[in-house]
Design a protein around this nucleic acid. Structure first.
Length: 328
DNA sequence: AACCTCCGCAACCGCTTATTT
DNA sequence: TAAATAAGCGGTTGCGGAGGT
């Protein structure tokens, strides 16, 4: 089938986003929620293609994103998941709350891969650099490969469990009650590679304050604060040139997220009144230590076979492995 | 201080998959 | 059922900062 260009090549702006563009996009998403990206450029007047808008939102503007400073546990998790899943960054990122696939991918390419290569002569310290046993051949569609993985989930779980076992004295622990909220209005923005992953990631996060759970409100007040930040003129691109946000660092306080732009801060917070939408499956983060994700995964791993064969109806952690549906 | 090289990351590109008509 | 379209994903690139000489 003929595929039209995703967007007009003429008149489409490229390159770094400006604060103004960010504001326009955030404001639009505040009103309409993420999705229908095709309509975003026309409705907002942004001279960007829909893809660019989506990417900007998912990788940068979306609340709940944490940037930089990967913890050791995150590193290990990425390494092991990469060994298990291959370069399926969206799937891997879905196990890391607050991390985008782009972030994970970049971190892998710039840090972890090199570290692994340095760590062992063959460039394969713990096997992560090898093509994973379950990695689909390029010609396979993702669906096909998912099914393969599903049929082989026992092996996969065992591999992951073994991979994670050396992580230390972490022990399986009871999981918080599952959160029914799963997709929200902003469905499938990030890491939607499998419902499993999304669900697990939500399970992995500390339970936020109920009012904040998956809720994102950008009030007019907040927008003005954001503008204040942008107007500061001292903003840098990761401490550098003006013109682009220095990184919309998000830090959650449990009931709100702060999106920092240089010197300014826009608070993305639940608020009474005003549009509200659930932005996606990854809830805002609590002060981040990545304790829950590992615990959840471990719990899932150690819980192991007891849940096979069981019809999965709830949003429990087991939903994280819809493969269970297919297990014999 | 100037230049060069390396590194990190945001964004783009092209392909695949999912959904709609 | 097929075509058209939208969305998602992963690989790659280019820019700007940091550090070294």
């Amino acid at each position: 089938m003929a595929r039209p260009p995703c967007c007009d090549k003429e008149g489409v702006k490229k390159g770094p986003w400006t604060p103004e563009e960010d504001l326009v996009l955030v404001s639009y998403i505040q009103d309409h929620g993420p999705g229908n990206w095709r309509a975003v450029p026309t409705r907002t007047g942004l001279m960007r293609c829909s893809k660019s808008c989506r990417l900007r939102w998912t990788n940068y503007l979306r609340p709940g994103i944490r940037r930089g400073n990967f913890t050791e546990q995150e590193e290990k998790l990425i390494v092991h998941l990469q060994a298990l899943l291959g370069n399926r960054w969206a799937a891997i990122a879905s196990y890391l709350p607050e991390r985008t696939d782009n972030d994970v991918k970049n971190y892998w390419n710039t840090h972890l891969k090199r570290k692994l290569q340095a760590g062992s002569g063959d460039g394969d310290g713990d096997g992560a650099a090898k093509p994973p046993a379950h990695r689909p051949p390029p010609s396979n569609s993702k669906g096909q490969w998912e099914r393969r993985l599903q049929t082989d989930i026992n092996l996969a779980r065992r591999a992951l469990r073994e991979a994670l076992t050396p992580l230390g004295d972490l022990k399986p622990q009871p999981q918080p009650q599952p959160q029914p909220q799963r997709d929200g209005a902003g469905v499938g923005i990030v890491g939607g590679d499998s419902p499993a992953a999304s669900s697990l990631s939500s399970q992995c996060s500390p339970p936020p304050a109920p009012a904040a759970l998956g809720t994102y409100v950008l009030t007019a007040d907040n927008v003005s604060r954001m503008l204040d930040g942008w107007a500061g003129l001292n903003w840098k691109r990761r401490g550098g040139a003006p013109g682009t946000p220095g990184g919309a660092e998000t830090a959650s306080t449990g009931s709100s997220s702060e999106v920092s732009y240089g010197g300014g801060t826009a608070v993305v917070a639940p608020a009474a009144g005003g549009p509200v939408f659930e932005y996606e499956t990854k809830p805002p983060a609590a002060p981040f230590q990545l304790m829950m994700p590992l615990s959840a995964i471990e719990s899932w791993l150690f819980d192991d076979d007891t849940h096979f064969h069981r019809p999965v109806q709830s949003a429990s952690l087991l939903d994280a492995a819809p493969m269970d549906y297919y297990l014999l």
